[in-house]
């Protein structure tokens, strides 16, 4: 196997953030980054098996008709690859079983929960136990939010990070568990990775607009128990350079945006464990 870290960004059917996601992967150190249209996957021109990092980027799959990511998840579940007819989901589960990484941002996170990739309790990646529903405000909103990275989570993307600042851009980002038990298990397993935080105290908050959607406990992102599958509502790929920051003209900021840090972690993990 070659020693190259290969990242795949899937686009098509309403994905919108593929370009900046691919840029993030490059800045994070991936050696090969391909933006691949869903139809190219479905015609066997590209295969998930050839990559280490799968990016499910933001957008509006199928216009978010039927609910965010809902129709997109349905496609992943039922579509087959021509010729041959291999179910696409087989490639996906093989990818996961091989210990590779999946990063889902916004619509990608919505897709992951609607496919049941998250929370992934007991390595079951087709069990829908959590979801993302309409913001309490009932509005789509674009605003930057402060995030607290929970300590000691297995998430490979957030190792060594504690505070992040990214924009949210969604109408359906309120986290919902199927029941109390699911929520406690998420906490127990340390699968809650990011929480919306108060600007002053840095503590998780329920107060709007610091918590933009009313997510309980301020949950903004979760991972699977292995930490290799990570989904989050805020957009790390929207903060790759200091000039992306809303106050770059008035604050001293490092050249590199915080979004790059997540990808660097992912790429380093791949280098250390998968090559």
């Amino acid at each position: 196997m070659s020693k190259q870290v290969k990242a795949l960004v899937i686009t098509g059917y309403g994905t919108n953030c593929e370009m900046e996601m691919a840029h993030a992967c490059r800045l994070g150190g991936a050696d090969q980054v391909d933006i691949v249209h869903m139809s190219e996957l479905l015609h066997g021109e590209y295969r998930l098996d050839d990559y280490h990092l799968l990016n499910l980027a933001g957008g509006f799959l199928d216009g978010d008709d039927l609910g965010a990511g809902q129709a997109g998840a349905h496609r992943w579940r039922y579509a087959t690859v021509k010729p041959g007819g291999e179910p696409l989901r087989d490639q996906l589960y093989r990818f996961i079983n091989d210990g590779k990484l999946i990063l889902g941002v916004c619509n990608g996170f919505q897709l992951m929960v609607k496919l049941g990739l998250l929370p992934g309790f007991e390595r079951r990646y087709d069990h829908r136990l959590v979801s993302l529903t309409h913001n309490d405000s009932s509005r789509f909103e674009d605003r930057w939010v402060r995030l607290r990275v929970e300590p000691d989570t297995p998430c490979v993307f957030t190792q060594g990070l504690d505070k992040l600042y990214f924009p949210v851009r969604h109408g359906e980002g309120k986290f919902v568990c199927a029941g109390e038990g699911v929520c406690s298990l998420l906490q127990e397993n340390k699968q809650v990775v990011l929480r919306y935080a108060d600007g002053e105290t840095g503590e998780p908050t329920m107060a709007y607009p610091a918590n933009p959607n009313g997510s309980p406990g301020g949950i903004a992102g979760i991972c699977d128990p292995s930490g290799r599958l990570f989904g989050l509502m805020p957009h790390p790929e929207a903060y790759l350079h200091r000039t992306n920051h809303p106050r770059w003209t008035r604050e001293e900021l490092p050249e590199e945006g915080q979004g790059v840090l997540l990808l660097k972690n992912g790429v380093n993990f791949i280098r250390d464990n998968l090559l």
Binding site: C17, R139, F140, E141, D142, H235, A238
Partner: peptide, 16 residues
């Protein structure tokens, strides 16, 4: 109105 429009998608936002 402004907040309900995505003004940052495509990653090139410099002055919002």
């Amino acid at each position: 109105v402004v907040r309900q429009y995505d003004h940052e998608v495509q990653g090139g936002s410099v002055v919002k």
